[in-house]
Design a protein around this nucleic acid. Structure first.
Lengths: 198, 198
DNA sequence: TATAAGTAAATGAACGTTTATTTATATTTG
DNA sequence: CAAATATAAATAAACGTTCATTTACTTATA
């Protein structure tokens, strides 16, 4: 039996993310992807059921999966609040700024109904995508360190500014001076921490 | 001369936003839009140069334009910090939760390269999309009320959690119980205010 | 060790459909 | 009539997907 060329699948995923980042999800076609990955269009259908399947796997496995791993490095739910949040922010910022294509598809998770639905289903199936963060916040709440809020509101407060700052970071990446420096990042992080602590 | 049927253009914009909200930007086609608006495809091309032109005008004029108007109601840059931010948050939340299709396209501004570019150009051309907010923040900084940060970072901190909460609001709208209540909204708003004030 | 059978991987060309856009024509009003 | 709006029908190009076939490698047999 002819052995699977694992490089081909990796190239497919890399090129798909690249095209999405540069031209947008709406301009990713199967034939364009095939050409970019130096592969026959038919080959994509050996590895993925159809376009939807490809996009969902890209989003869930390649983007969210790696993001979660990166964000949780050196993090544990026993850290104190400031320490924990700073760790998460630094991990996420480093990962996202170094992986622009992943970030680009991640942003589509907030707009594309297809990816949005896929995310919610993945979230339900796996219990929690970011279980350690959930635990961390619950513990902080139980200890009376932070104000009581629904988990999803807590998450929105903690992470959406970070995502927005990464977006600004890329906007400024092409200009003469970067304004989203590590100092600015940590200043923003500390503003949040101060606001959330009782 | 035959008069323009203004209702047709309004219907076109409404239906375009509706399709985008329900099926995604990637599933809006000119023929689908024409059928939904009960109009010949050619008619769209009398009112818009091409698809890009339609999308950009939808985004800039219909979505961002109305959003700006709604957000700035009863706001003025002399308000004190807490009062001003609460006013902006309440305006934005009310407008967005009552205009889901507008919100849906707005979210694509963070992902689609086409809309992203259009936004940046509009921002440059018009000087500032949200000039009163800029003034407000500058005044607060000058008075030493809030920490010094680049404007774009300040804006990310102030508004991205709000957008994220609106997103959560819609996610929960179909479930049995809404968790993003006015109380939760204001609690989040106050967390930010507390964090940003010196 | 040589070779033929077996098999999944991979392909190029094609399918029918849908896309954005245009041509030629009809309709509506000053 | 003149002039603009609106249309139905048509266009080539691009779309997602499939067909029939070839390629490349493993394994079983002589």
């Amino acid at each position: 039996m002819r052995p699977k060329n694992l490089e081909k699948e990796a190239t497919l995923r890399t090129m798909a993310l690249q095209i999405i980042a540069e031209e947008g999800l709406e301009n990713l076609s199967m034939q364009k992807l095939a050409k970019a990955a130096n592969v026959s269009p038919r080959t994509i259908y050996i590895k993925y059921e159809n376009k939807e399947d490809l996009l969902i796997k890209l989003f869930i496995e390649e983007v969210l999966g790696n993001y979660e791993k990166a964000v949780l490095q050196n993090f544990n739910s026993d850290m104190d609040f400031a320490e924990g949040v700073q760790c998460l922010w630094q991990n996420a910022f480093a990962y996202l700024t170094n992986n622009r294509p992943h970030f680009a598809l991640m942003q589509y998770g907030n707009s594309s109904p297809l990816l949005n639905k896929a995310f919610q289903q993945a979230n339900i199936q796996q219990g929690d995508f970011f279980a350690p963060i959930h635990q961390f916040l619950e513990k902080q709440k139980a200890q009376g360190c932070i104000h009581h809020l629904p988990f999803d509101a807590q998450r929105a407060m903690l992470f959406s500014p970070l995502i927005s700052l990464v977006s600004e970071y890329f906007d400024y990446a092409t200009r003469d001076r970067q304004i989203i420096t590590p100092d600015v990042l940590m200043a923003c992080c500390n503003i949040l921490i101060k606001g959330m602590l009782k």
